Amino acid sequence: MLPHDLSPWGMFMNADIVVKAVMLGLAFASVITWTVFLAKAVELWITRGRTLAALGRLSEARSLGAAAEELSRLRGPGVTLFNAVQAEFRLAGDASPDGLKERVASRLERGEAATARSMWRGTGILATIGSTAPFVGLFGTVWGIMNSFIGISKAQTTNLAVVAPGIAEALLATAIGLVAAIPAVVIYNLFARTITANRASVGDMSAAILRLVSRELDRNAAPYAKAAE
């Protein structure tokens, strides 16, 4: 008869205090992974829906005034970019069109960068868990096997019934490390692809706003050009 209960819970309860700490830390990391997954998945899904909705409205607008009216009832990064452009128009006054275009492009560029930072926020913990969890689990395994060999030395026997429980407890730490790491890596890669697609949509929104600004400035400049002739 084996001297220990070799169920996962039994092995956890009979493990060394260091191995227990490692297992609990990895279990907590796994909880963090799934919490981030749920929260970030909802956030990215909402962001993408809002961006596409704003892009559809903006594509149909013929002027900045019409676009402002269409986007007034929407939210999201696309609307934030458009509001920044409107703010620049108010600050510019009667500035030259070329200078205004440069400042609008600068605002759009910084707005895209801020949106990208916001979308990536919170995903770094997934990369950290995915890269470190296997090694943390391996540390628990090494510690547990070391204690098993010390126990073998003290018992002065190599009977498998004596050796197996300690080694099984140690290997459980590696298994929990993999359980924590694999989902973290998969979810991080999934978010990376989703964020790339969202950034492309935000870039399309920025380009649409810039085209609308260019048309607006050209329309405003046309009467002055005819008067000069």
Results as ranks from 00 to 15, higher is better:
residue 30 S to Y: 09
residue 55 L to I: 05
residue 60 E to R: 09
residue 60 E to C: 08
residue 29 A to H: 08
residue 28 F to W: 10
residue 56 G to S: 09
residue 40 K to C: 03
residue 58 L to Q: 01
residue 51 T to E: 04
residue 53 A to K: 03
residue 51 T to S: 05
residue 56 G to P: 06
residue 31 V to I: 15
residue 49 G to Q: 05
residue 41 A to G: 13
residue 32 I to S: 12
residue 58 L to T: 04
residue 54 A to W: 05
residue 43 E to L: 07
residue 39 A to E: 11
residue 30 S to K: 12
residue 41 A to I: 05
residue 58 L to H: 03
residue 53 A to G: 08
residue 50 R to H: 09
residue 54 A to F: 10
residue 37 F to Q: 01
residue 38 L to E: 10
residue 38 L to Q: 10
residue 37 F to P: 01
residue 54 A to C: 15
residue 28 F to N: 00
residue 58 L to M: 10
residue 55 L to K: 02
residue 44 L to P: 00
residue 59 S to R: 14
residue 28 F to I: 15
residue 29 A to K: 07
residue 51 T to W: 01
residue 55 L to V: 12
residue 45 W to D: 08
residue 59 S to G: 13
residue 47 T to M: 04
residue 60 E to G: 03
residue 38 L to A: 15
residue 44 L to K: 00
residue 57 R to I: 04
residue 36 V to N: 11
residue 34 W to F: 15
residue 59 S to T: 10
residue 59 S to F: 07
residue 54 A to M: 09
residue 42 V to K: 08
residue 29 A to D: 13
residue 53 A to C: 11
residue 51 T to H: 00
residue 48 R to N: 07
residue 42 V to E: 02
residue 48 R to M: 12
residue 35 T to Y: 03
residue 49 G to C: 05
residue 36 V to Y: 05
residue 29 A to S: 15
residue 34 W to Y: 14
residue 50 R to M: 03
residue 56 G to L: 05
residue 37 F to K: 00
residue 41 A to E: 11
residue 56 G to K: 05
residue 28 F to R: 00
residue 47 T to V: 12
residue 30 S to C: 14
residue 46 I to F: 07
residue 48 R to I: 02
residue 47 T to D: 02
residue 56 G to M: 06
residue 56 G to E: 10
residue 59 S to L: 12
residue 28 F to K: 00
residue 42 V to M: 06
residue 44 L to S: 01
residue 35 T to S: 06
residue 55 L to E: 09
residue 39 A to H: 01
residue 34 W to N: 06
residue 44 L to E: 01
residue 50 R to E: 07
residue 45 W to V: 01
residue 58 L to C: 06
residue 43 E to H: 04
residue 36 V to E: 13
residue 31 V to M: 13
residue 41 A to S: 12
residue 53 A to P: 13
residue 37 F to V: 01
residue 48 R to H: 07
residue 33 T to K: 14
residue 39 A to M: 11
residue 33 T to V: 15
residue 30 S to G: 14
residue 55 L to T: 09
residue 38 L to H: 10
residue 33 T to G: 13
residue 49 G to L: 03
residue 36 V to T: 13
residue 60 E to F: 05
residue 28 F to H: 00
residue 59 S to K: 11
residue 41 A to L: 13
residue 40 K to S: 05
residue 60 E to D: 12
residue 56 G to A: 10
residue 53 A to L: 11
residue 58 L to W: 04
residue 36 V to W: 08
residue 38 L to N: 09
residue 45 W to R: 02
residue 28 F to Y: 08
residue 43 E to F: 03
residue 29 A to F: 15
residue 53 A to D: 13
residue 51 T to I: 14
residue 57 R to N: 11
residue 55 L to A: 06
residue 59 S to A: 14
residue 32 I to N: 06
residue 33 T to S: 14
residue 51 T to D: 01
residue 51 T to V: 15
residue 58 L to V: 02
residue 34 W to T: 09
residue 40 K to H: 04
